[in-house]
Nucleic acid binder design. Structure first.
Length: 332
DNA sequence: TGCCAGGCCCTCTTTAGGGCCTT
């Protein structure tokens, strides 16, 4: 067994001006749970909601093996009361990459979505993670990821994960997201191959025993998921078979088509304006967009009367993308 | 030389084309 260890200080962000988000978050999920069916039991985010802006203050450091988890290790307990947090925080997690464990994970058979969706105890099996990536462009072949952020909607300690990624090439679309070549092309920023085992380990730590991870992103089917698949392939890795994906873009289309709403477009911005969601920070930074979508998701699913089971039924797997590609290739 | 992303959806369509959506 080979174990690689690394310290990942992936957040050094100002925890400030998030009071409204903290309130919205709890309120959103309370309303959502009250309105929707009981089996969609996402808990309100508890005590720790981290700053949403600090893109320029994020810092990756690689250090000798130690653990310093302010939020998650349980060594330091904090109030669960949402509060305005002004100090800069640093979260570190010891990442022990156990290749045997990861190998076992990949041996799990590809899941049957219908069977999962019909599980009576679905909420105890599914971890819902909203995620977003920033990239150097739209091409999954030629472009690279430069930032990744995700939020486990269960909330609680260490419910967010965010880092810049070194693409080992110039960033030519800084005007879109504000991430420059100088910010990511330096030794302190992890390359994708460094990040993947850490990310897998983090996600594994959020999974429920024998459960599934439901990844949610806007335009996930066409952009984020194929992009991630290609990134993993370049690292000789695969999507774990217990990962499912939900694309909120078709959900938005469904809502728009259903009529009775003033939703006029299906972009993330249009949805944010439609639901009157205010989020601190600049759009097109990964964590800001994650927070936006995290607030949109419960409202969107509620409007569509979608339970967790319904959401799982609308999910897709890596193999579905591969199969649809093959299908298209054969029909061309 | 020409292309330079790709899939979904709509319609003035289906033997197609263009807009939307993601960075």
């Amino acid at each position: 067994m080979k174990t690689g260890s690394m310290i990942f200080s992936f957040l050094q962000v100002p925890r400030c001006r998030i009071h409204s988000l903290a309130n919205n978050w709890g309120e959103t999920f309370r309303n959502f749970n009250n309105t929707c069916e009981k089996n969609f039991s996402i808990r309100p985010l508890g005590s720790r909601i981290y700053g949403l802006q600090g893109g320029h203050r994020k810092k990756w450091t690689r250090r000798p093996i130690t653990t310093d988890t302010e939020e998650g290790g349980g060594t330091k307990s904090r109030s669960t009361k949402p509060e305005i947090l002004s100090e800069t925080i640093s979260i570190s997690s010891t990442i022990n990459v156990n290749k045997t464990q990861l190998g076992q994970l990949q041996e799990v058979q590809h899941c049957n979505i219908q069977e999962i969706a019909q599980n009576k105890d679905l909420s105890s099996l599914v971890t819902v993670i909203v995620f977003d990536i920033e990239t150097t462009g739209f091409s999954r072949e030629n472009d690279r990821t430069i930032e990744i952020a995700l939020r486990d909607l269960q909330g609680g300690p260490n419910s967010t994960f965010q880092t810049l990624v070194n693409p080992q090439r110039d960033v030519t679309n800084s005007a879109i997201h504000g991430i420059t070549t100088q910010m990511v092309n330096k030794p302190g920023i992890p390359r994708m191959e460094d990040l993947v085992p850490i990310l897998f380990h983090y996600v594994q730590s959020r999974e429920k025993p024998g459960g599934y991870v439901l990844w949610v992103a806007h335009n996930a089917r066409v952009f984020d998921v194929p992009f991630i698949i290609n990134e993993l392939r370049r690292c000789s890795r695969q999507i774990p078979p217990n990962w499912l994906f939900v694309d909120t873009l078709p959900l938005a289309r469904e809502l728009m088509k259903s009529g009775g709403t003033k939703l006029s477009a299906t972009s993330l911005v249009a949805l944010r304006e439609f639901y009157k969601i205010e989020v601190e920070g600049t759009a097109h930074r990964a964590m800001v967009d994650v927070n936006t979508l995290s607030l949109i998701l419960p409202r969107l699913t509620c409007d569509l009367k979608l339970t967790l089971s319904g959401l799982v039924e609308k999910s897709f797997r890596e193999v579905d993308i591969i199969n649809s590609k093959k299908k298209k290739k054969n029909s061309d």
